[in-house]
């Protein structure tokens, strides 16, 4: 407990905790931009359907990472277990997804 208090104080001194809203607004901007990009890709009928699908999924993953890192503070120190467990959860979720794509109908 003691050690943690010191860590917090330490981080306060280095100005990490009282960071302003700037980072968050930037993250918001990126999110909005990625979303717009995805919607525009879908609205653009000239593009190949498969390409659009892959493209918008990549955008979604990218946006998720941004939000996890900034808004959910995953980029901060001391988030080892959070990253480990969320990544494992994502791994299992992706496995289930692959199952649904390849092995349910044949």
């Amino acid at each position: 407990m003691e050690a943690n208090q010191e860590q917090v104080q330490d981080r306060v001194k280095r100005g990490r905790i009282h960071e302003g809203p700037r980072n968050h607004i930037i993250a918001f901007g990126i999110s909005i931009f990625l979303t717009l990009l995805a919607f525009m890709a879908v609205a653009n009928s000239a593009l190949d359907a498969t390409f659009i699908k892959i493209f918008i999924v990549i955008l979604a993953v990218f946006q998720a990472v941004i939000q996890l890192a900034f808004w959910m503070h995953m980029k901060d120190r001391g988030h080892f277990f959070q990253i480990l467990f969320l990544a494992t959860g994502a791994f299992v979720a992706i496995t289930a997804f692959i199952m649904a794509v390849y092995w349910v109908w044949w």
Binding site: A96, A100, W103, V104
Partner: peptide, 12 residues
């Protein structure tokens, strides 16, 4: 619906 889907979910 798909009966195999349950098998997958159950065994996952």
């Amino acid at each position: 619906g798909n009966a195999i889907l349950w098998e997958h979910i159950f065994w996952i």
